[in-house]
């Protein structure tokens, strides 16, 4: 095995478009932290939400193909930033532990899948393989004074017997990583509430209600920004914030970061490599405040 932290990387489709800043910042942060990402060759879509609502076997086959592609790589596991891709990969792998199920999936593949690589989120790798302490040691620009509401979304840790990471009602991995980079983590109680997910298109009122509540409560507990680990959550809270404000007669201006962007900031990576300009709600003032406080402290 090459370096001690080498993983097959599954970027996921949204990482190519709507959440390109998540993908870019993930790659930049992993590089800086010494986690080597090797893209799974010729990876394909995991089927997202539609596939598994139609057929469990076909859906599992989509993910199993990607797992299979990674099995000849010299890696410690498969990792992905996106909780939705993660769910599909882990559920497929979990279901394939049933021999009969696996046989049906294998029939659809060129060759049978070994199904023995660990599958994790990038968050889990940074939290468990590296750890908050090691991360803190690498911080050059601590995000002192930045008040954050950590928002994990509803699928990152659920169902617990499949996802097998952190607490499914009160996860803390991102909290500890954000503390490690110097930010102040607020007691945000709705960490695992639903944001409305893909209803943004079909039933926009559902998203404006659910995501609106997330923004309200984040503001109530004194957060200046939210931090997420999920492309869909980030999009609903950030891109749809105007729609939410209009529907609920609110006036939120809450920046919504990917946790990788904030780690990158604290590690001193360039704004361009973190694609901070892709965020809809401009976070610029937050960093200026941190900077001002830092120079004031220095004087």
């Amino acid at each position: 095995m090459s370096s001690s932290l080498t993983f097959a990387y599954y970027p996921g489709c949204s990482g190519q478009g709507t959440s390109i800043e998540y993908d870019k910042s993930t790659r930049a942060v992993c590089k800086a932290l010494g986690i080597e990402l090797v893209d799974i060759p010729d990876w394909s879509c995991c089927g997202s939400s539609p596939a598994h609502t139609v057929d469990h076997i076909l859906s599992a086959a989509l993910s199993a193909r990607n797992i299979l592609q990674a099995e000849d790589m010299d890696v410690q596991g498969i990792i992905t930033p996106c909780p939705s891709c993660l769910t599909n990969l882990k559920v497929a792998s979990h279901r394939m532990r049933d021999e009969q199920f696996k046989e049906k999936v294998d029939d659809l593949l060129n060759e049978p899948c070994r199904n023995d690589l660990p599958i994790m989120s990038v968050l889990q790798v940074i939290y468990e393989k590296l750890g908050p302490k090691a991360l803190a040691a690498k911080v050059t620009n601590p995000l002192k004074g930045l008040k954050l509401a950590p928002y994990y979304g509803c699928i990152m840790n659920r169902p617990p017997e499949v996802m097998d990471f952190d607490d499914c009602e009160n996860p803390v991995a991102m909290d500890h990583l954000m503390e490690a980079v110097g930010a102040e983590v607020m007691p945000f109680p709705l960490k695992v509430e639903c944001c409305g997910a893909s209803f943004g298109v079909a039933r926009n009122d559902v998203v404006t209600k659910l995501s609106g509540k997330l923004l309200d409560v984040a503001a109530d507990c004194g957060a200046a920004a939210m931090v997420t680990a999920c492309p869909l959550c980030q999009m609903n809270l950030d891109m749809r914030q105007d729609q939410i404000n209009r529907a609920n007669k609110s006036s939120h201006k809450m920046a919504v970061f990917y946790y990788t962007q904030l780690i990158g900031k604290a590690l001193g990576l360039s704004d361009a490599s973190l694609m901070l300009d892709k965020l809809c709600v401009d976070p610029g003032h937050l960093f200026r405040e941190i900077e001002t406080a830092r120079t004031a402290d220095a004087v």
Partner: peptide, 9 residues
């Protein structure tokens, strides 16, 4: 143990 009820917080 019930984190959803605040886990004592």
């Amino acid at each position: 143990r019930y984190e959803e009820y605040g886990g004592g917080r």
